[in-house]
């Protein structure tokens, strides 16, 4: 366990080092406008990664998040055109996310289906509903006041408008995970479902709620996505699910559940965004970026294991040496 903790500490160090090195070798990288762009670019991934951390910590997974976000985005566009009110549209979009999450939660906790299988199914279903809703059309007439929120920065700062939302939610999810009873339940369920059940933790209800929250936040991310791109379209957020899961795992959350920290995940999302931006600014081509993404993910699991084996080996050797010298 301690080695995993040290991994998420390493992620934070990596983040700091990357930004520092980036600032030295490339002044453009550390410029306000670029850092603002990085924050904006990782917005949806960061949002969805927060509740996904909880889910993976309890040993579940949700692959349908990108489709959920896209469906919420499509509902936003559809409801805006139907009602003419952005407030109604936003509520409808978040509500869509909640329903999507509840369907996942129901199938997993009530019917006892594996979440990997269920969410592969709902990934297709929700994406399909996007096409059923919008077909070949794109909704691109959102009011300018709203779309400005998506891509301009807070006046006087280089920060995008999504920043306060990210900070508030990241802190809130972090507090819940590390300082409340719900958070302790999440760790307990992740360590051992059986033990958690014996301890009186309502495992099914907890997991159901986590799926609903994940859906709701994915819905929120769908709104952010629409505003950032000033349009709602059925193929929005395509493929984001693997990026989210890769970030959470890179942040030191164990895929077996029970281990991880919120700040490790937040650091990981920021680190991956910064590294990508830095490499892109250095002219590293897209094909190499794909390899680096995969390589980093592999490194995040290989390095802790190798480090542990190395220290175990050294300990054993020193013990042998100590035994050999009377």
């Amino acid at each position: 366990m301690s080695r995993v903790l040290s991994w998420d500490r390493s992620v934070f160090v990596l983040l700091v080092v990357t930004v520092a090195v980036g600032a030295v070798i490339d002044p453009d990288f550390a410029g306000g406008s670029n850092l603002g762009f990085v924050l904006q670019d990782i917005g949806e991934i960061m949002l969805i990664a927060l509740p996904m951390t909880f889910l993976i910590m309890t040993g579940e997974i949700d692959l349908s998040v990108a489709s959920t976000a896209a469906l919420a985005g499509c509902v936003l566009g559809w409801a805006w055109q139907a009602s003419g009110s952005m407030a109604v549209a936003v509520l409808a979009a978040v509500g869509t996310g909640v329903v999507c999450g509840a369907v996942n939660g129901f199938l997993v906790t009530r019917l006892g289906l594996g979440s990997l299988a269920v969410t592969i199914g709902t990934l297709g279903l929700y994406r399909g509903l996007c096409y059923a809703l919008l077909g070949d059309t794109t909704v691109a007439d959102f009011p300018a006041g709203w779309t400005n929120l998506g891509f301009s920065s807070i006046p006087g700062t280089p920060l995008p408008y999504v920043t306060p939302l990210l900070v508030v939610l990241a802190v809130a999810f972090g507090v819940v995970l590390h300082l409340t009873r719900t958070g302790r339940w999440v760790f307990a369920v992740g360590q051992s479902v059986e033990a958690a059940r014996f301890a009186g933790i309502p495992v099914a209800r907890l997991k159901f709620r986590l799926f609903v929250v994940t859906g709701a936040v994915a819905g929120l991310a769908g709104i952010v996505y629409d505003l950032r791109f000033a349009s709602a379209r059925p193929d929005g957020a395509l493929g984001f699910e693997l990026a989210v899961i890769a970030s959470v795992l890179f942040g030191g959350v164990s895929i077996f559940g029970g281990v991880g920290t919120m700040w490790g995940v937040v650091s990981a999302v920021l680190f991956l965004g910064s590294v990508r931006s830095l490499l892109q600014l250095q002219g590293v081509p897209g094909n190499a970026l794909t390899i680096i993404t995969g390589g980093l993910l592999l490194a995040s699991v290989v390095i802790p294991v190798v480090a542990q084996r190395w220290s175990a080996f050294r300990e054993r050797r020193s013990r042998v040496l100590a035994a050999a010298t009377p």
């Binding site: 891509f151 349009s231 379209r233």
Partner: peptide
């Protein structure tokens, strides 16, 4: 995508 790159291009 005809719509989504518009804000960035204006920037």
């Amino acid at each position: 995508d005809a719509n989504s790159v518009v804000p960035a291009l204006k920037k």
